[in-house]
Amino acid sequence: MMSTELFDRPGPIARRRARLWTAAVAVAALAIAIWAVAKLASQHVLDGNNWIVLTHPDVLSALLTGLLATLKVAGVSVVLSLVLGLFIALGRMSKRRWLNVTSRIWIEALRGLPELLLIFFIYLGFPAVTGASISTFWALVAGLVLYESASMAEAFRAGFLALPKGQSEAATALGVRYIKTLRYILLPQVIRQILPNLVSEMVRVTKASSLGFVIGYVELLLTGEQAIEYLGGQYAVPIFAGVAVLYVVICLILSRVSTILSKRLA
């Protein structure tokens, strides 16, 4: 991961010095850890009774339900932003000026706005304009899709630009129509290329779906908050730790998949 060429391979003296520093750092880290544990213990955070709550079936099933809701939002958003992003990328590469300019504005404008604001645009704006109501699930998904469509479009465009020009030229020479060239020649290659990108997109969306917390879509973070409200403040840290661990595990699994995919496809 890190460039190892940065320094010479350490000799005996450097190794001894490194060992010494490692020991010093370990002592310092240990001291900080002990201080933190003592501090937490003095607030009764570490009382075993509070942590047993995480093994309670109701809490566990609530957290897992929250996790499923998070994954549902993330999955739907990624698929939709993939489709929208593809169309915007095609628009961005189009020779028709109005299409090109519109998609460019779309990308630049949406990339500069907070996801939370886009979610609110849908959540409050959609009912205000149409008079119809929108569920928190779709408001969250639509906001995330708006935001992610811009970065998806850029990923697609990079994928298309990276293809050798001969691919589409050959298709034109053979008399294959644009749509078919796209469907059978270009897209399969582009998708292969941006697959790792897609998985890291999934990580981003999974984390961003925690914004559902704000509009009241019961995903993992809001489940945790509700559990804390219901059970009481002494369970705040254990439950938060459970929520955080679930996020970290899901995201690490997805990142690992992304690394494996990019190695496979390279």
């Binding site: 991961m1 890190m2 460039s3 940065l6 320094f7 350490p10 450097a14 490194a18 520093w21 490692t22 750092v25 370990a26 880290a29 990580v203 999974t206 984390k207 961003a208 925690s210 914004l211 917390f213 704000v214 973070l221 938060f240 929520v243 955080a244 996020y247 970290v248 995201c251 690490l252 990142s255």
Partner: peptide, 26 residues
């Protein structure tokens, strides 16, 4: 992360792996 000290490198990687994967809202 670029230190020659393996413990420091581990600390840095663990911090990044943990903190980056917890959502900002959390």
């Amino acid at each position: 992360a670029i230190s020659t000290n393996p413990l420091l490198r581990r600390i840095s990687m663990a911090y990044i792996g943990l903190m980056r994967n917890i959502p900002a809202a959390a």
